[in-house]
Simulated assay, not measured.
Amino acid sequence: MTDRTRAHVYVSGKVQGVYFRATTRDRAREVGVDGWVRNLGDGRVEAVFEGSEDAVAQLVEFCHEGSDAARVDDVEVTYEDPQGEGGFSVRW
C-alpha cells in the first residue's frame, strides 16, 4: 500500500457534546479509514486518520465542517508515516 498516509488532527471550536466523534467515526468507516478520535480536556477533539491519501483527505476536509451541531474554529493537521492502525474507534 504505497499511497497509505496518516493525518494527526486537532479540531478547535464547539466540537464536544455535538456528536463530532460519532459522526467522525461513521464517516471514517464509510470511506475505509482506520484510526481513532477522542475529546481532549481543553475542549478540542484529537483524531488520527490512516488510509489511502484520498480517503484521509476526505476525513480531514470533514473536520473543517464537523457534525451538524458543531462549530469548527480551527483545524491543525500534521501528516506522519502510517503506524498500522486497524479499524476506527472512539477513545475516551
Rank of each mutant, 00 (worst) to 15 (best):
V11E: 10
G41S: 05
D73Y: 12
D26K: 09
V90T: 03
R38F: 00
G66M: 11
R4C: 12
D68S: 15
D3C: 08
Q58M: 12
A28W: 08
G87H: 03
S12H: 12
L59M: 15
A22V: 04
Q58G: 05
F62M: 15
G17F: 03
D3S: 11
A55W: 10
C63W: 12
E61R: 15
G32S: 07
T24I: 04
E61M: 10
P82H: 06
G13P: 10
G87P: 04
W92N: 08
V45S: 02
T23Y: 01
R4Q: 13
D3Q: 11
E76Q: 13
R6Q: 07
V48R: 01
G32I: 06
Y19P: 00
G13V: 09
G35S: 02
V15L: 05
L40Q: 01
D54G: 11
R21T: 09
V48T: 02
A55E: 03
F88V: 08
R21V: 04
F49A: 02
R44G: 01
V56Y: 07
G41R: 08
V48L: 06
S52K: 09
S89G: 07
V75Q: 08
A28L: 06
E50W: 01
R25N: 06
V11G: 10
D34Q: 03
A69V: 07
A28S: 09
H8Y: 13
T24Q: 05
V48N: 01
G87F: 03
E53K: 14
R4Y: 12
G32F: 11
Y19L: 05
D73L: 15
A70M: 10
G84W: 11
H8D: 08
Y79G: 12
R91T: 00
R21Y: 02
T23V: 04
Q58L: 14
A7E: 11
V75K: 09
G51Y: 07
V37H: 04
G41I: 02
D54R: 14
V33W: 02
G32M: 08
T78N: 13
V31E: 06
F88C: 09
N39R: 00
S67T: 12
V90N: 02
E76K: 13
R25W: 03
D81E: 14
E65W: 09
E76C: 08
M1S: 13
A55Q: 07
K14I: 02
F20A: 04
V60H: 07
A55R: 05
T24L: 07
R21G: 06
H8A: 11
V45Q: 01
N39K: 00
D26Q: 09
D68F: 14
D3G: 11
E76I: 14
E50T: 02
D34N: 11
F20T: 05
A57E: 12
C63H: 14
T2H: 14
V75W: 07
W92Q: 06
T23Q: 06
V48H: 00
E76D: 14
G35A: 01
A47I: 04
D3V: 06
V37Y: 03
W92M: 02
W92K: 05
D54P: 10
V48I: 11
E85L: 08
D68A: 15
Q83T: 13
W36I: 03
G43M: 00
M1A: 13
